[in-house]
Design a protein around this nucleic acid. Structure first.
Lengths: 402, 402
DNA sequence: TTGTACGCGTTATCAG
DNA sequence: CTGATAACGCGTACAA
């Protein structure tokens, strides 16, 4: 109670002094000419002193600078004039504005918020604004006007295999965006674009190797996204599974069992919309004939499941709970991403998973984009970066009973 | 396996045809003059036909429009020229750019992502770009250049009681932002700004009334944020608690017990950074002398706890687990926000909570801002909107045993 | 209904 | 080292 009242009292009381919106904006803005007049110098000199001080006496520059400051000259305000003038000489200024294209309402998924956090982390301190775009509308409808206005300096995008071609074509065809840099972030590698990628083959390899080391011999893996989105890089990942198997002298065709657990088989709990996609998705299998259960009955030798990502892993565990299979005692589960926690009884994350360096990937993409925008020489260079992944062993995997 | 290979094959093979970045941009841009020449008309006519078609014969307008289209005239590209020209007559164009000021790395909290989702939902289809700003740096350091350039049309912000004054002063003092509209979203009501608010008194009232109806008579409530941020509107909320008590003929001074569960008392599990603030915060009380436990020992009559928000509710539940107090059998818990699930054994959300219409609030703020930016007449009008809250009863509250 | 003329504020060029 | 000048492309008074 004390605390509460203290805060109430602290509330500022200067309602009167708050600068309120005025009816009219100050119509008189300081221009370079004003500064020149005040200095008794020519307009040209002032402009040059500000942009290329090396051509002038230090004394002159200082003088001009101080007058400009005193008069409150604000070059940013006259940006349009500068741009117009510069255009004559074929010079385009940076707008410090980046477009971010994400495939879904990113605010609902940990995966994208982490990517975003990394990007933001770099872009914002560097003075770049961010324009967020949904890739679905990006591909299907007109590009936002900002592109036509040439306000977008570059793009960071995360596109599906089916979308990337349409997206890049649209971008390159907008004459006012045309040749500017595009970064593909954890998605396809696109001709003419830079990219930040992870080795999907490695995910699979690491996960299976871990399971084999624990004595597991029959492993099930997920081949459909819960939300029916295409699974990115699934073939690379499967190649990784197979490689690990073969290194152990096992035949992937026998020891790897695919399972489809698409959306059709789930009954999403009837919660307010804001819960549907949050990390702890409340969902239960529709019934006893959920394909996961069917497959498990058909392959009783299976002791481990490779989920496509953490969210899937969590759902799969719910299904197992449903029929009394315990994790990790009866069945091991591995996720991918390290974005969503699978909670144990103490509220701790027990999910063994392949960690993707998402924030770092976002940061790298942003840094690389800024570099291309800034470095005069290298701006034509596309770059490709590969980030390592790491297996995080927690409690959802255990030695096989068999 | 089949699926996987199918997707691989589907990958587009047109690497050759992809429009790649060209070395030089096309230097020749179509101007109004080009259009005029092609039409055999004057520059003025063309300009006016495009901006004020009502002054011209329909025939003329059509002709000009078609020529402009044919030549590929792009007005957006010549934005700076238009702005420069318009400025002479004191006209400022919209930039279709809104700044969003949030108090922390919003990507980590469900609360802010829901607000954001609502805002985005409205702003993006309307063609507005979003610049995201952290309020800490917003208050402490220089405003981003975009403000000085006059590129920001308006601001939506969520500020703490201690920050709002500094924030609004800074904004109003930037002559190039000056009088433009500012929306306060679920934070303070600020003089000269519009706001979207919820009635905090109502939160408290609803929650306590529900508990009293279940027979609870001694109720504990949280007076410090886990992360030591100030608690917004705590006094209003407490007023709500008290009102409900009094309506039941109970003395708040006796039946309401405050408890401080600030950060000092928690040991955040040593997880990779990306987990620290995710919805299911893995945290345990530092020891047996956690203030919550101390207070519970001192007040054995307490049968219910009012958490400040859902995240706190979840933490509090962990503490109770720690000493074997079951929810809701031994103790009822109520959260606020309806943003984070408290999971039961089946993975369903069991948290009774006061639901804040966050997405709706975001949408409303965005819509209102656009209205002010667009409506010529009303642009000087500040607005205040109040949104209703709703008690969502789930499983974390039950009749009192006592 | 249409055309003429001017200036928005800056910058690079070129001549001193 | 400094100054005069000519655009950049547009939109609007004003005159016709």
């Amino acid at each position: 109670m004390l605390e509460a009242e203290l805060i109430l009292v602290k509330k500022p009381m200067h309602d009167q002094e708050v600068p309120v919106r005025q009816a009219k904006r100050d119509p008189r803005h300081v221009t370079l000419r004003d500064v020149a007049r005040q200095c008794g110098m020519s307009l040209t000199t002032v402009s040059r002193a500000l942009n290329h001080p090396e051509f002038h006496k230090e004394e002159t520059v200082e003088r001009i600078l101080s007058v400009a400051l005193e008069l409150g000259y604000n070059p940013a305000y006259h940006d349009s004039a500068r741009r117009l003038s510069l255009r004559r000489h074929g010079i385009e200024l940076l707008n410090h504005q980046i477009a971010l294209v994400f495939p879904q309402d990113f605010a609902y998924s940990n995966y994208f918020r982490l990517l975003f956090a990394g990007i933001w982390d770099v872009l914002t301190p560097a003075g770049f604004g961010l324009v967020l775009l949904k890739s679905s509308s990006f591909v299907s409808s007109q590009l936002p006007v900002s592109f036509a206005r040439g306000e977008i300096d570059g793009v960071i995008m995360h596109v599906t295999p089916s979308d990337w071609y349409a997206a890049i074509t649209k971008l390159r065809e907008e004459s006012n965006f045309g040749p500017r840099p595009v970064m593909s972030l954890l998605s396809n590698s696109i001709p003419g674009c830079s990219s930040v990628e992870v080795d999907a083959r490695c995910h699979g390899y690491l996960a299976v190797k871990h399971l084999l080391g624990l004595g597991h011999r029959a492993i099930m893996y997920q081949i459909k996204h819960i939300d029916m989105q295409p699974l990115w890089h699934i073939s690379e990942r499967v190649a990784g599974y197979q490689q690990a198997m073969q290194e152990h002298g096992l035949d992937p065709a026998i020891h790897l069992i695919p399972v489809d657990i698409g959306a059709a088989y789930w009954e999403i709990a009837n919660e307010p919309k804001q819960h549907h996609l949050l990390s702890a998705l409340p969902a239960v299998p529709r019934s006893d004939d959920h394909p996961l259960l069917v497959q498990l009955r058909r392959h009783p030798e299976v002791t481990a499941v490779l989920a496509h990502n953490d969210a899937s892993a969590i759902l799969i565990r719910h299904v197992l709970d449903f029929i009394g299979i315990r994790v990790p005692e009866d069945m091991s589960i591995i996720g991918v991403d390290d974005t969503d926690p699978m909670l144990d009884a103490e509220g701790r994350n027990m999910l063994t998973t392949v960690r993707l360096p998402l924030e770092e990937a976002g940061r790298l993409a942003a840094r690389e984009l800024i570099r291309q925008l800034t470095d005069k020489d290298e701006s034509q260079q596309e770059s490709r970066h590969f980030l390592p992944t790491e297996l995080i062993v927690r409690g959802s995997t255990a030695p096989s009973r068999r």
